[in-house]
Computed example of a mutant assay.
Amino acid sequence: MSLSPLLVAMGLTPLQRPTSNNLESDILTTMDRKLLDILCCPITKRPLQPLSTQELEALNRHIADGQARYLDDTVVDTPLDEGLITDNGSRIYRVDDGIPVMLEERSIPGTAAGRD
């Protein structure tokens, strides 16, 4: 079973793609708040929030330079359109086609987005 039907069965919807140039605002207004409220980092159990525009740009610069790695030490080779970051900035999770990829080995250290 794919994740989308499961989310719908739970009364939730996948994250939606932003519709304007204000990424941060769009994610917060189009994302199903229920989904964001229940998601947490599988490693730290910390709440998640959308990456800010500045964090997303910094992360994509690191990806373009070949400097971003997943937790499993493979190189992140595809830029992110959207992402979620733990509230303490330790981990980033990509959002592909509106669905968060919440796999531990596919998380990216928060330092790649300019977080300390």
Rank of each mutant, 00 (worst) to 15 (best):
D72V: 01
A58F: 04
L71Q: 12
N88V: 11
S20D: 08
P50G: 07
P50T: 08
I85Y: 01
R69V: 11
I92A: 06
C40I: 11
C41H: 08
I43V: 15
G83W: 01
L51G: 09
D72N: 15
N21A: 14
S90A: 14
L28V: 07
H62G: 08
C41P: 05
T19L: 10
S2V: 07
G98Y: 00
N22E: 11
R115A: 06
T111H: 11
P14H: 05
G110F: 02
E57V: 12
S107V: 07
D65E: 15
L12P: 00
T86S: 13
D73A: 11
P79S: 05
R94N: 10
S90G: 09
G98V: 00
E24N: 09
D81S: 10
D96Y: 13
L15W: 07
T30P: 00
Q54C: 07
V95T: 04
R91T: 03
P100I: 02
E82C: 10
L3G: 00
R91W: 13
M102Q: 03
D116M: 09
R94D: 08
G66R: 07
L103Q: 14
D72R: 07
E105Y: 13
C40M: 12
R106Q: 15
D87I: 15
S52A: 07
S2T: 12
P109Q: 10
E57S: 15
A68E: 02
T19I: 12
I108V: 13
L71W: 04
K34D: 11
P14E: 02
P79E: 03
S52Q: 06
G89W: 03
Q49T: 13
R33C: 08
E82M: 15
E82I: 10
Q54K: 15
V76T: 05
S52I: 06
P100N: 05
Q67R: 15
P79C: 05
L80V: 06
G89P: 02
